[in-house]
Nucleic acid binder design. Structure first.
Length: 431
DNA sequence: TCTGGGGTCCTAGGACCC
DNA sequence: TCTGGGGTCCTAGGACCC
């Protein structure tokens, strides 16, 4: 027995561009690139259909985009603004189904199972018609109330719904009836299936595979050589089968409330406008990144067990170094460690392009700030100001933070086992 | 095409334990 | 004390997504 298509993937069309057009309607119909100015070191974050015609796509360097479409309008990225609109879209979607999961700032999954009865109207011929009509109403609400275009794919599984939303663009709705999935997917290039990137596509090409229909007929052993643990999922995906589970999410894209449990890592990284050799600039940037990541972790109510440094040289060679320690979210602990990792990692006198700091292995902060007496007052007061006025309201001197020894690794200093739960506060590595 | 920034998940080797 | 096997954790790197 076939399940009816009830899984929706809603995707906001050229989302960042659409939001910019709300603020400046004169941008409508014009070529728009969001990401920054050509000549700066960035890439295209989003772009309108008018520039896509010239081969511009997200990820392309802004310089290249500028060459291809010199008269395009180049705008900086305003993440917070887009985040606000994303929340408003979410609020509308929540009116239509209780089971909604955000996949990113401009994409969400919705499960309409069990909603047919509720939405059923006279004139709906069959359950598919009910879902289709409801989705159209939801799309119209987003368009009428916010002025944002969206596309929706409806199918029996998540990945099929996702592919369908792509096929529905721009501003369309596509329902893939149960039983027609494989036929819909077969002629599409392999890259259309989520999870198949440039590397996998290249390997598949070597096997003479370039369409999803060929994957659907490939042997699992062959696929395992390309996809490893993903092979089964890729095979099912190419046939239009797969998970239809939409787990109702915590608000994963809100940093302000202390959910923490959906987040697996917190990181900040920065590419310099020009490659840097001056150690003072490096140190001050590392310090800034540590502060920022620590602050975000504290706002989420999490501590990091693993701290990582990312370093990219001017030749783009990238390396990372990490260490696992007792959970912390204090820059007074994190910075000395990052500095130590940096000193150990820096293996050549080459100018540096990018620096990054990341937290993984996150644990919930059991009590508010499981920090350390003498630092916590300082951290608390700075946090209080930033809570009100934003991170950049306070700038600390590097020297204020760069005064400690790095914390010891797990396993030393009586940290028996390092196994289970979060430790009591105050037993951090202390001198 | 001189290549951002925020994430998630997987792999593989080595340490360490029983 | 030429040597097993399973399990977990840590580290480094990489593919992929938006």
């Amino acid at each position: 027995m076939l399940h009816a298509p009830r899984i929706c993937c809603l995707d906001l069309d050229t989302f960042f561009v659409s939001v910019e057009r709300l603020f400046d309607p004169s941008l409508i119909g014009k070529p728009v690139v969001v990401g920054g100015k050509p000549g700066s070191r960035g890439v295209v974050t989003a772009c309108s259909y008018e520039v896509r015609e010239y081969g511009v796509h997200s990820g392309m360097s802004l310089t290249e985009a500028g060459k291809r479409v010199p008269d395009a309008i180049f705008l900086p990225v305003r993440s917070e603004t887009y985040g606000e609109y994303s929340k408003q879209v979410r609020a509308i979607v929540d009116r239509y189904s209780p089971v909604v999961q955000a996949a990113s700032i401009d994409e969400m999954f919705i499960d309409f199972s069990g909603c047919e009865r509720m939405y059923r109207r006279r004139g709906d011929f069959g359950a598919d018609a009910t879902v289709l009509r409801t989705v159209r109403e939801m799309r119209a609400a987003i368009s009428d109330e916010l002025g944002l275009p969206a596309s929706v794919g409806i199918a029996t599984s998540r990945s099929m719904a996702k592919v369908a939303s792509g096929l529905a663009k721009p501003a369309g709705v596509l329902l893939v009836s149960a039983g027609t999935e494989a036929k819909t997917l077969a002629p599409l290039p392999v890259r259309k299936l989520p999870g198949i990137g440039p590397v996998a596509a290249e390997k598949l090409k070597g096997l003479g595979i370039d369409r999803l229909g060929q994957i659907a007929e490939a042997s699992i052993d062959e696929l395992r050589r390309v996809f490893g643990a993903w092979a089964t999922q890729v095979l099912e995906g190419s046939q239009g089968r797969g998970s239809s589970d939409i787990s109702r999410d915590q608000p994963a894209f809100r940093e302000h409330d202390a959910t923490g449990d959906t987040v697996r890592s917190i990181s900040n990284e920065r590419t310099f406008r020009e490659d840097v050799s001056d150690p003072l600039i490096v140190e001050s940037q590392l310090c800034h990144l540590c502060e920022r990541v620590c602050w975000r972790a504290r706002r989420r109510g999490v501590l990091a067990r693993t701290i990582s440094l990312k370093l990219r040289y001017s030749n783009f060679k990238t390396l990372s170094r990490s260490r696992t320690i007792l959970p912390t979210a204090s820059e007074f602990e994190v910075y000395p460690l990052i500095k130590e990792l940096y000193d150990l990692a820096r293996d050549r006198p080459m100018p540096i392009r990018l620096l990054g700091v990341s937290f993984t292995n996150l644990v919930r902060a059991e009590q508010q700030l499981a920090l350390f007496e003498h630092d916590s007052a300082l951290i608390r007061s700075v946090d209080a100001i930033r809570q009100r006025y934003g991170f950049d309201a306070v700038r600390r001197a590097t020297g204020q933070i760069a005064r400690r020894k790095a914390p010891s690794v797990v396993g030393e200093a009586g940290d028996a086992g390092a196994g289970g739960g979060v430790r009591e506060g105050g037993d951090g590595p202390r001198s």
